[in-house]
Design a binder for these strands. Structure first.
Lengths: 126, 126
DNA sequence: GCCTATTGTATATTGTCTGCCGACACACGA
DNA sequence: TCGTGTGTCGGCAGACAATATACAATAGGC
C-alpha cells in the first residue's frame, strides 16, 4: 500500500494518512473486504509511531470505511461514506478550485485536470 | 465583507478566515488595491480575538495576496499567488474529488458542481 | 488447552499549536 | 503634538499531535 507523508503539509500526519487511504478506497485500489497492513508495518514504512497510524485507522472507522478488530487487523467495510449535506461537501471543493484559480490557471485547464482526476476515480465499472 | 466561521470545521479559525478571504479574492469580490476591514472589526463581527484575525492576515501576506501595514490597514496586493508546482496544486483537488466520489455522487453530477463553482470564479472578464 | 507471535489499545509524557488578553508601536489627520 | 485608529508583540492556558512503553485481544501451532 503506497502512501506518503508530506512534511510541508500543515495537516497532522494521522489525517494525511487517513486521507490517503480514503483516496485509495475512492479509486478502488482498496476494495470492500480487503485487509489493511498492520499499523506497525505502515508506521515503520513511514517512519512514525504506530499510534499515529492507529489514529488514522480509527478516524476511518469512525467514518464507516474500516472495521478495526483488536488482535486481528483492519478491514475495508465500505466503498462509500454515509451521506453528507451538499453544502458541506462543496466547501472543500470550492476552496481547492479557488486555489487553482488564484494560481492563474485558465478555466479550461482546470476542467481538464478535474476530468483527469475523475477518470482515476471512475475508471472501472464502479 | 461577509465571512463566516464553521464551528464543526476542524481547521483552526485563523485558517478558515484566511481561506475565506482567499476565496473572495479568487472570485473578484476583493480586488487588487482594495482595503480590508480592520482586524478589530472582523474579530468583533465573528466574535473572536483580534489576534486571530491578525494571524489570518499575516498568513495571506506570506502568500503574497495582502500587504499588511502597521498603523494603516491591509491591502489586497495581488489577484494571484506565486506559481506553485503542479503536483502540489493537484493534491487538494484530488482529495476533494475523492471525498465527493466516496459520498456516492455520480461523475456527471460532480462535473456539474465543478462547473457551477468555476462559473463563480470566472464570471467577470478576469 | 496452552504457548507464542501478531495485532490493536491504553496511558503517560513531551512538545507544538490555537486562541486569548493586555500592553505596545506605528500612521495619519486635526 | 496629540488623539484616534491601526497592526504587533509577549505571555498565558488549554487543546492537540506524536512518541515511548506497557497492556489486551486474536490466530495458529503444538
Amino acid at each position: 500500500m503506497y502512501i506518503t507523508i508530506d512534511e510541508t503539509d500543515r495537516r497532522p500526519v494521522y489525517r494525511q494518512v487517513a486521507d490517503e487511504i480514503k483516496g485509495l478506497i475512492a479509486r478502488g485500489e482498496l476494495c470492500e473486504g480487503m485487509a489493511l497492513p498492520p499499523v506497525r508495518q505502515v508506521a515503520a514504512d513511514l517512519g512514525v509511531n504506530l499510534n499515529t497510524i492507529a489514529a488514522a485507522y480509527r478516524e476511518l472507522q469512525k467514518e464507516g470505511l474500516l472495521k478495526v478488530r483488536h488482535g486481528s487487523g483492519a478491514l475495508v467495510t465500505a466503498g462509500r461514506v454515509s451521506q453528507q449535506n451538499d453544502a458541506e461537501l462543496r466547501k472543500g471543493l470550492r476552496a481547492s478550485l479557488a486555489h487553482l484559480a488564484l494560481a492563474g490557471l485558465p478555466r479550461a485547464e482546470i476542467v481538464e485536470i478535474v476530468n483527469e482526476e475523475l477518470s482515476q476515480l471512475y475508471k472501472t465499472g464502479r
